[in-house]
Design a protein around this nucleic acid. Structure first.
Lengths: 334, 334
DNA sequence: GACCGTTAGGCGAACGTTCGCCTATGCTGT
DNA sequence: ACAGCATAGGCGAACGTTCGCCTAACGGTC
């Protein structure tokens, strides 16, 4: 692979002069410049970013540590990150984690060895991990899409209050009183927060918390399906279900259909995320639109600010309701 | 950031000796070794992979150029690639393309500048691009998940014959004779092949090709929805639809439902991919399981073989049917 | 006690850049 | 004709590694 020296030899100049020309830095005579550019082209010179980074102490790279992105939502965040990074001329090194997040420390170290300019975390499984928090505070600039143990890392998150409050209020306004909930993994802060808001909003309407109305669906289609059957088996009078993500909601719709319950006539369903399929489920799903891709992009911009060493300021992104056909007034009899 | 020299100073040895210890290479007295290891730990030494790569002429990195992975299928391939790369101690640099693939050449160049050890392509939009083909043949080792213009790049692909033949034969065996098809983007070789196989298999059963039965759904949910309405508007007697991916099939099911047609009683639907939601659509979708994640992993292994300069041999992965509730015998009247 | 083999660790060079400083050349003005 | 000054380009050093070669010291053998 050709180096500056090879180009220089061909153009009869010193290799530093070639560097100047190719970077448009120093003063070089037009004729020489031309000669150098031609020589570079002829031998197919491609600069070595490794050497450049070594010298310049900046790799123009950022590392991303993400939860498994087989699911659409982390994939969307990743898309947002990658796109925004690309816009700023940064490359992205991708590391995905096993579900338990146990290998996070190892991958953080790899990123540090590669001298990434910054790190973006999207691995909620590690949000309680003190060691991860320590490394992120000590290492290169970092930004996270969720909480980090011990804090000190700027975050970009969807407006958590609204994420649960909007759909619950929507259901209340339609006259529903027995509103069930299918949650994501209860270890995750985001699931805990939504559950807390669900309790609060219901309490605000004089409705006591009923644990029989809450089931864990583990963020997965099958989890939502199974959770719904469990809910309907043990609790009566349910006229609406708030599901903490759309993937589970697909399972919920299927379970309700299996039981011969019509959505929304017998039971309303609200999802969360506005997953691409939500628009065409049967019936189309009323859901909360989450700014996943925007959050990824915002994280990159925040990271760039942090690298430029301005003060870290958390970003909270707004969420909004998307009204479709899976919600309706509570049945008269209920 | 600490370097070998800093560790050396603290342990009173030459920096090369530190290198030896940390890489477990040369013979070093146990006492010195211990001293060095402690010194490294005390000052929090982290090796500089950039410098190492520069010297060793190997970056332990592979570049991936992928179509936008908001959709589940390219995301799954990417997951497979990343996981397998990680298993082999390689990092992944991710570049995603705009839909038209026009920026591919630019990103290939970035990867070459970064001296990646290999490149994996998953960007069907570039499969006709001669320049891309040239670069891939001339540059570092490359492997593709689709065709490359001009060939010369080993590929990993699903068994294309079966991808369309299996579902069509399934529908034929159920007695269907007017089988419509919703295709992906017709520019893509994969869509073209499936269309060709569809024609052949039908012809093999004495059924002439009817262009009225074929519509483009552009791989998207909404495309599938709109294509179905167009099909039903202009062609009569359709009792089954083969949809070239599950995402479009979600739209197809929705459109059929809107028209008051029951699946599978009035019309059977077969998808393709075995997308996570396919198990819980209404009704659950009969589909072709595609080995996306496996293909990604296989691509990494093939790339490693290529790097080790064994001969490039294309890999073809088997596909299989998943029978669910969206297909049934053709209605008696048809 | 001279010889040799082994072990521990030093040292120079190279990988491919960028950067700052230095010098040779030629041109201007008086 | 000579100071003064751009302009063009050379050169050394540094970034942080790895690798191979060299040498000093030590212990054992005849």
């Amino acid at each position: 692979m050709a180096s500056l020296r090879d180009v220089a030899a061909r153009a009869n100049v010193s290799f530093q002069t070639v560097s100047k020309v190719l970077n448009g830095k120093g003063a070089v005579a037009p004729a020489t410049r031309q000669r150098i550019i031609e020589a570079a082209e002829e031998i197919g010179y491609i600069p070595n970013a490794l050497a450049r980074s070594l010298q310049s102490r900046s790799s123009l790279t950022l590392g991303v540590i993400t939860v498994d992105f087989s699911n659409a939502t982390p994939a969307l965040s990743l898309v947002g990150i990658e796109r925004e990074a690309r816009r700023h001329g940064l490359s992205v090194i991708l590391s995905s984690l096993e579900p338990d997040g146990s290998d996070c420390v190892r991958y953080l170290r790899v990123l540090m060895e590669r001298r990434v300019d910054g790190i973006i975390m999207n691995a909620p499984a590690t949000e309680e991990d003190e060691e991860v928090g320590r490394l992120l505070r000590a290492g290169p600039a970092a930004v996270s899409l969720h909480d980090i143990a011990g804090g000190g890392v700027p975050t970009v998150t969807p407006e958590s209050e609204g994420t649960a409050a909007l759909p619950i209020r929507h259901l209340l306004s339609l006259g529903h009183r027995r509103i069930a909930m299918v949650t994501g993994l209860q270890q995750r802060h985001s699931a805990q927060q939504r559950t807390a808001v669900y309790r609060e909003v219901l309490a605000g309407h004089g409705l006591p918390y009923d644990p029989l109305l809450v089931e864990d669906g583990a963020w997965e289609v099958e989890g939502g399906y199974a959770a719904t059957h469990r809910l309907l088996d043990r609790a009566s009078g349910i006229t609406a279900i708030y599901v903490q993500n759309d993937l589970m909601a697909v399972g919920v719709l299927n379970a309700l259909h299996e039981r011969g319950l019509s959505v929304p006539d017998d039971c309303s369903v609200v999802g969360c995320d506005d997953h691409p399929v939500a628009a065409r489920t049967i019936p189309p799903l009323t859901t909360v639109r989450m700014p996943f891709s925007d959050a990824g992009a915002a994280a990159v911009r925040l990271l760039l600010e942090r690298i430029a060493s301005t003060s870290p300021k958390d970003v909270v992104l707004p969420v909004s309701m998307v009204y479709r056909a899976s919600t309706a007034s509570a049945p008269a009899g209920a």
